[in-house]
């Protein structure tokens, strides 16, 4: 029995036990998307009817292992009914005895995810479609950043997060990752951490930060965004952090547009109107450098999990080749800021 057949059987057993009636897994298809969690499209047959869902597994050998499915699950549950552009979460557990790894199940939303790397999908859009997608993309982010998490199930997350310490907490979080993942010393990473320590902004508010908000992490259908995906890095922090990530050059695909969708100032103007605060441009620069460093660290994670022999996915060493280009971008960005 191969891995997929074994997973199919475990999934059917789990869902049957949970619902108290037989559930058959008709299809289990692994998607080539994502670099961390493994994503499957699942078709179930239950009570004579078929329905689809998405299953995500956080493998023990994965990029950011060890995983917990709970932050993503709790966030989507908190956002349910708020009008947020997010799939409905069905189930999650960190108990590996169920499916072999922490897992998360959610609604399968119609649509396709544009690929960010070359800009081919962005350039193929006509202006009307790009404008609609840009508006949806910006509005969904502003809406997320105005969501009152204190009145939701996420309130306990915010016990220690303040506008004053939001940046410092993230620097500390990613510094620990750097120490864990780096296979060799990277002087530019140390320079970047030193610069971030010296230039921390105060957040305009503490908000839900998606953590990976970019082209490629949403579904679109007929020119409209149907769902924001991949919430695994969600946390409470400075909302400008998500802007810094979305503004990364890696997601512009050579178009010069933020995520291949909107000019920077147009993006910011619409976001500011929706989010209800003016984006401090120095804070945005801080979070751009932070995001570049976070991206370099993500590539270091890929190098580490491949080097340790945990994961033979060829995307891991491929990602590892991008450490130097990203560090070079940090060096140039800091040079421009000096």
């Amino acid at each position: 029995m191969n891995d997929v057949d074994a997973l199919r059987e475990r999934l059917a057993n789990y869902l049957s036990a949970r619902s108290g009636r037989p559930v058959v897994v008709r299809e289990l298809v692994k998607f080539p998307v994502g670099f961390s969690w493994i994503t499957y499209g699942v078709r179930l047959q239950e009570n004579g009817a078929e329905h689809d869902l998405i299953l995500r597994l956080g493998p023990p050998y994965g990029l950011f292992a060890p995983y917990s499915a709970l932050p993503e699950y709790e966030t989507l549950k908190a956002l349910e009914g708020s009008g947020a552009c997010a799939p409905r979460a069905y189930d999650a557990s960190d108990d590996p005895s169920i499916l072999g790894a922490p897992f998360f199940m959610c609604e399968r939303v119609e649509g396709s995810a544009p690929v960010p790397w070359s800009g081919r999908d962005s350039r193929a859009m006509d202006d009307a479609r790009r404008t609609d997608l840009a508006n949806d993309f910006i509005d969904a982010l502003a809406s997320l950043h105005t969501f009152d998490w204190r009145r939701s199930g996420l309130a306990p997350w915010g016990a220690c997060v303040t506008p004053e310490n939001a940046a410092a907490r993230q620097i500390a979080f990613w510094r620990e990752k750097h120490e864990r993942w780096a296979l060799r010393p990277h002087p530019m990473a140390h320079r970047a951490f030193a610069w971030l320590e010296d230039n921390q902004p105060v957040a305009p508010r503490v908000a839900i930060v998606h953590g990976d908000y970019r082209l490629g992490n949403f579904l679109e259908q007929n020119g409209r965004i149907t769902a924001i995906l991949d919430w695994e890095l969600v946390h409470l922090a400075d909302p400008v952090e998500d802007l810094g990530w979305a503004f990364l050059p890696q997601y512009r695909g050579g178009t010069g547009l933020v995520c291949g969708l909107a000019k920077e100032e147009e993006f910011l103007a619409r976001y500011e109107a929706g989010a209800g605060f003016t984006v401090d441009r120095k804070a945005l620069r801080f979070y751009l450098v932070f995001s570049l460093l976070k991206l370099a660290l993500t590539h270091m994670a890929a190098a580490r999990c491949f080097e340790d022999g945990r994961f033979n996915d060829m995307r891991m060493p491929a990602m590892a080749t991008q450490i130097a280009p990203v560090l070079r971008q940090i060096e140039k960005t800091l040079g421009a800021a000096a």
């Binding site: 790397w117 995307r315 560090l327």
Partner: peptide, 17 residues
């Protein structure tokens, strides 16, 4: 970093995705 970039192949993330 310049040397690392000079000795790097053209990325193929689009094809891999």
């Amino acid at each position: 970093l310049k040397w690392e970039l000079t000795t790097s192949a053209k990325p193929m993330f689009e094809e891999m995705s």
